[in-house]
Nucleic acid binder design. Structure first.
Lengths: 157, 157
DNA sequence: GTGCTTCCTCAAGTGGACTTGAGGTCAAGG
DNA sequence: CCTTGACCTCAAGTCCACTTGAGGAAGCAC
């Protein structure tokens, strides 16, 4: 309700439009996921297009996709100029398989809860649910989202 | 390859069969997500049925569903006796909506990456992606998975 | 009976994704 | 001129889902 939607946004405006906290934008920027330039007063200014990047990040987060997996997608999207549809498509390819896997897992989980689980096939080696998402294993301490490392993860020495 | 599959399992056996670390089982137990009794030597013994609970937990984790959301489902599943199919189904209802939302989000994300994003509809108020998963907001500091709190989360005072 | 493996507890560490807080700058309004 | 509000930085705190480590007891195998 101010300046009739200017092309560059302050962090407050970005935060409001993207539905995230200012600190989150700071964080994403520190992580190199979004970019800004500065006014003479050292205030951030964002190109409106950065909004889309934030949107992508947020949706991915909502779906439990870690930032480390979002980064490569974002990296495929050229900076500083308007992005062609083909380029978005190319970026999306990075996720295509992953998304398919997840969709499949969810569908199966949905369809078969009350049947698949009930019937006992939900053991590690039998159930398709377990053997679906095994790309992107992340190792080392800390939680393993995207587990998939169901094999060989009994109890390391 | 030991005792021809006995009905109760040690934590090591559970861990191996469930594809998780022993420490994870300790943790789940401390969180009240699974249960065990003890041998005279204070060693855990698990009913074979706990395997299914672990499987459910793991799949949910893989899909980015936080333990706090898994708990209510597990709570619907009676302990100590074999679970009827209807009971599994009832438990699954807790998730039904959630899973549907996620499936929808994923499908849309998948289908429309390169189109929806490219066409600019991915702004907070327009895009269906943002308005899909708004149940289960969790508040307070720390990460917000399941964000959905996209509304009203601009920058709290 | 000596040794290896498995188990136990409890406290502390870790990684990811942020948030909070302290202390400071700058432009505009009353 | 002073206050208010939006912004800045940087360090530290927080939550979740675990893992690691220290220190110790029990089972089983030879």
């Amino acid at each position: 309700m101010k300046k009739a939607v200017p092309n560059d946004l302050s962090v407050g405006e970005m935060a409001a439009r993207a539905g995230v906290a200012v600190s989150t934008l700071h964080y994403y920027e520190a992580e190199g996921l979004i970019e800004s330039w500065r006014t003479p007063a050292n205030h951030r200014r964002y190109d409106r297009r950065e909004l889309r990047r934030v949107a992508i990040i947020r949706i991915a987060q909502t779906l439990g996709i870690p930032l480390a997996q979002v980064r490569p997608v974002l990296d495929k999207i050229p900076r500083g100029r308007t992005v062609k549809a083909a380029e978005w498509a190319a970026a999306s390819e990075v996720w295509a398989e992953e998304l398919d896997d997840r969709i499949e897992m969810l569908l199966r989980l949905r369809q078969t809860l009350g049947h698949c689980i009930g019937c006992g096939c939900l053991s590690v080696d039998n159930c398709p649910l377990y053997n679906a998402g095994d790309a992107m294993g992340d190792n080392g301490p800390g939680p393993r989202r995207w587990t998939g490392a169901a094999e060989e993860r009994a109890d390391p020495p």
